[in-house]
């Protein structure tokens, strides 16, 4: 459907679809989601198979084999992958952003949104799926290590994963979009750095559990840091506004409306 106006009269009828000037390619996002989904489902199945089987006693060799090994693999693998992606984004940065064409710039805004589609998707798995799964584990069994089968997945696989995409989003914006290269976007920094701080906040969490919190109350003040840092996700509202301000300019620049007079 499309709308054209003539002399103030509205004409609402199907219009010829404008020549496809495709701004957004869903394929890469779909692939990204598919791969992430496979990883998360794989990790969940791994928990199903081995969490209760070999994960209750951190002093056994089986725990070493099944859980510590996973921990030792996932951390370098995920951060290593992230480092490759980040390096790539930086090395291939646009070195002449001042000369960017409006159409390219608009496409890059769509690409930035694609990054957010992966970033928010990956954050969902720690915030909801494995996050409450952690409650299931620690309220059910007796905690005997900081590296429980639940933590090895939720903290040390899921957290690095969304950090990869968060920092990736930040780097994409900074290296390819003029507004984000000319000035630090405060809300974007908040939306990326805030959730990323959940990783160091684990230090506080484990310290508290090691020394004075012997039982699991999920709503305990010891855990509030996770919620507070999660709130920084609200700052994507500010990023959205930054994007909308510039995109609305670009839309009008690329496809001006001569016949429409604003009311």
């Amino acid at each position: 459907m499309s709308v054209t106006t003539t002399a103030g009269k509205l004409d609402v009828r199907p219009a010829a679809r404008p020549k496809a000037n495709k701004m957004f390619n869903f394929g890469p996002v779909a692939i990204g989601w598919g791969v992430l989904l496979a990883i998360y489902v794989g990790l969940r199945l791994y928990q199903q198979a081995f969490a209760f089987e070999y994960g209750l006693d951190s002093t056994t060799p089986e725990f070493e084999t099944y859980w510590v090994t996973l921990f030792n693999i996932e951390i370098p693998l995920i951060f290593g992958t992230g480092f490759v992606i980040w390096t790539y984004l930086w090395m291939t940065r646009d070195r002449n952003l001042a000369a960017i064409k409006p159409e390219v710039e608009l496409k890059r805004y769509f690409n930035l949104v694609a990054w957010f589609m992966l970033y928010t998707f990956s954050f969902l798995w720690i915030a909801s799926f494995f996050g409450e799964g952690d409650a299931t584990w620690h309220q059910t069994v007796i905690r005997d290590t900081a590296l429980t089968p639940s933590h090895i997945v939720v903290f040390y696989a899921c957290v690095p994963m969304y950090i990869v995409f968060g920092v990736g989003s930040l780097l994409y914006a900074t290296t390819r979009i003029p507004a984000f290269a000319n000035g630090y976007s405060v809300p974007l920094l908040m939306a990326v750095v805030g959730p990323a701080l959940i990783l160091p906040n684990l230090g506080y969490n484990e310290w508290g559990h090691a020394f004075w919190m012997t039982e699991e109350i999920f709503s305990h003040p010891l855990h509030w840091g996770f919620s507070f840092l999660g709130w920084t996700g609200l700052a994507l509202g500010g990023v959205l506004l930054q994007v909308v301000i510039r995109m609305s300019q670009l839309l009008k620049q690329l496809s001006p409306v001569e016949s429409v007079r604003a009311k």
């Binding site: 928010t120 409450e132 709503s219 919620s227 994507l236």
Partner: peptide, 20 residues
């Protein structure tokens, strides 16, 4: 994006403040 964001931020907020 909004759905994932709203979902996850609401969840992590509620989970650790009133989850039990």
């Amino acid at each position: 994006v909004g759905a994932f964001l709203v979902w996850s931020v609401t969840y992590i907020s509620q989970l650790l403040l009133a989850g039990d």
